[in-house]
């Protein structure tokens, strides 16, 4: 593979994946191929949504891009640098809540700053600002245990924003929210995204959410995940989600996804029957 030989990649794109594959527990009896042959280019400032059946490797791909796991095949670059370790430039918001229970909300949000040795005043100011954006400034001094699941996830969003990342990786961040809150969080996310100029990679199961947010929707096949198609959405923002165009997109994405989910279930049944 040519990308294996090239230590540097000329593209300055926010994320570049070439031939990326991940096999969990590679080389053991439990080896499990989650992703294969991913080629993907994400421009600076682009909003990309990952859509795919459960278990197809969307979270895995975000981990690889974040640098938290090593790809077993292929390589990932970010702004021309090979991704080998995690970096504050690429913030990941995890699918499960991941706040530090021993820190208050604002201490959680400013954790990254404290790692860099910032003083308390600065940390509190930055945290207040980030929490303001997610509508949780009043909960600054609470502990994560005192918050609801959705509130915790918003704190996690604030924490990622406080790092001012160039690439924001979001793994189903709004899955636990009610429809209204989710709509507000989407609007807020679009604001933040526009202001920050960061690229956003956003995983979701909700086709509505994909249509509301994405510049491009990457649809994955069932496991092992490959890119099935990439659907560009060039509706201007703010989007009218009840327009004919939006409706057509929803139908198209639903069809694409249904095929894959059907296939995933068919495969499972094939597994269940002893050959």
């Amino acid at each position: 593979m040519s990308s294996e030989d090239a230590p540097h990649f000329s593209s300055r794109d926010a994320v570049v994946c070439r031939g990326v594959g991940k096999t969990w527990a590679a080389g053991t009896k439990r080896a499990h191929e989650a992703l294969t042959d991913i080629d993907l280019d994400i421009k600076p400032g682009e909003f990309v949504v990952f859509l795919g059946p459960s278990g197809c490797g969307k979270s895995t791909l975000l981990y690889l891009i974040a640098g938290l796991e090593d790809a077993t095949k292929g390589r990932v670059w970010s702004f021309g640098d090979l991704v080998e370790t995690p970096s504050p430039q690429r913030s990941l918001i995890f699918q499960e809540t991941s706040l530090f229970p021993w820190l208050t909300v604002w201490e959680n949000v400013s954790f990254g700053l404290s790692i860099r040795g910032a003083g308390k005043e600065e940390r509190r100011t930055v945290a207040a600002e980030a929490l303001q954006r997610v509508g949780l400034k009043a909960a600054m001094d609470k502990r994560p245990d005192e918050l609801s699941g959705g509130m915790r996830q918003r704190v996690a969003v604030a924490r990622a924003l406080a790092m001012r990342p160039k690439v924001l990786l979001m793994d189903e961040p709004f899955a636990a929210l009610d429809v209204q809150t989710r709509a507000r969080m989407q609007d807020f996310l679009l604001d933040v995204w526009r202001d920050s100029g960061a690229s956003v990679l956003f995983v979701t199961h909700h086709i509505d959410e994909a249509v509301a947010l994405a510049d491009r929707v990457v649809v994955f096949t069932s496991r092992p995940g490959r890119i099935k198609t990439i659907v560009p959405i060039d509706m201007p923002r703010p989007r009218n989600l009840f327009s004919r165009e939006a409706e057509n997109l929803r139908i198209k994405l639903t069809d694409l996804l249904r095929d894959e989910v059907d296939r995933a279930f068919a495969e499972q049944e094939a597994f269940a029957v002893p050959a």
Partner: peptide
Amino acid sequence: VNTNLINVARTMGASKAQ
């Protein structure tokens, strides 16, 4: 220890000692 907590710190650039 919950892997996510460790990973959060890693993405924020924490050193091993931190």
